[in-house]
Amino acid sequence: MIIANNLHKKYDELHVLKGVSLHIKKGEIVSIVGASGAGKTTLLQILGTLDLPSKEASTSLVINGEDILNMKDKAMSQFRNLNLGFIFQFHQLLPEFTALENVCIPGFIAKRNKKDVEDEAKKLLDFLGLSHRINHKPNELSGGEQQRVAVARALINKPAVIFADEPSGNLDTNTAENLHQLFFKLRDEFGQTFVIVTHNEELANMADRKLVMVDGNIV
């Protein structure tokens, strides 16, 4: 599903990633852990096509069979919208829109049929236990409910890969545990691949594989 070779990231004199290579299989849940500054979020952003690696002779990134680094910007944006989903520590819901409308946004960006997108969004929100909250705006939802709306938004285009950056970092212990269990339920239900950056040891240890980053590389 994801094959990355020799990923480097340099910001002037700062060398953040130092030749990361990894292979993540379809349907696998992989956690990435390490101290602050180890390069976890930078790696996640590059794997998620939100940033590009520094140019090196043997660097490559293939996701779902597509050669990412040879794509033009428009093609990469379209690939990201249709194939990748993102869950962040701060849910980043748009405050003026309802839960249903927030979930629908990636589907509308993909120019899918409005009714099909709304029907799919309602199914996802029901699956996540939020069918009674679809017309509520983010400020009317609890932190856990907001994060589940963000999960539904990440799933709306049936992406092959879900990238999560500290997804439970802003939640209380019980809500975080529920979210962690949800990831495995989603994998079993929809077959998605998950790549999760986390400081939460419990979540990290639940994953199929735990990758440890130290000083810009996987050890």
Rank of each mutant, 00 (worst) to 15 (best):
S131H: 11
A35P: 14
F127P: 04
T193P: 06
A176M: 09
N170Y: 03
R133P: 05
V117Q: 09
F79T: 00
L17E: 00
V219S: 06
M213I: 06
K18M: 12
F163A: 03
S142D: 09
Q192E: 13
L7T: 05
K10R: 15
D208V: 06
V62P: 03
N64G: 13
V62N: 03
L7I: 09
C104T: 11
E177K: 13
A35E: 14
S58Q: 15
L44F: 12
F97T: 05
K25E: 13
A176P: 03
Q192V: 01
N64L: 08
H15F: 15
Q146L: 10
S36C: 09
F184H: 12
V161N: 02
F190V: 13
I29E: 02
M1E: 10
A35W: 12
T193L: 08
L14M: 10
R153Q: 11
D12K: 10
L94I: 15
G37Q: 10
V161D: 01
R112E: 12
I162P: 02
G169A: 13
Q192C: 01
N178D: 13
I32K: 06
V197Q: 09
F183A: 08
I63D: 03
C104F: 07
A154C: 11
R80A: 04
A160M: 09
T98L: 10
K74F: 13
N83Q: 15
L61W: 01
G169P: 03
L44I: 04
S60D: 02
N102A: 06
Q147V: 05
L50W: 11
L211A: 05
N5D: 02
K123A: 09
L44C: 05
A57R: 14
V33H: 11
M213C: 01
K123L: 10
F194L: 04
G39T: 04
P167T: 00
Q92G: 15
I156C: 02
Q147E: 09
V62D: 01
V195H: 08
D126T: 14
T49P: 03
S31F: 04
L69C: 01
A110R: 14
E101A: 10
S60V: 02
N217G: 13
P138K: 15
F97E: 03
N5H: 09
L82R: 12
A75L: 04
G48C: 12
T175W: 08
N178V: 15
K40D: 06
L171S: 03
F127E: 12
M213N: 04
V33E: 15
V103E: 02
L100H: 07
K122G: 03
D73S: 12
G48M: 09
T173K: 10
L52K: 01
E177T: 07
Q146F: 08
E201P: 14
V197G: 09
A152L: 11
R148I: 08
K18Q: 11
K210N: 08
L203Y: 02
F108L: 12
P95D: 15
G143E: 12
I24D: 08
V30C: 07
L7R: 05
I156D: 01
E201V: 11
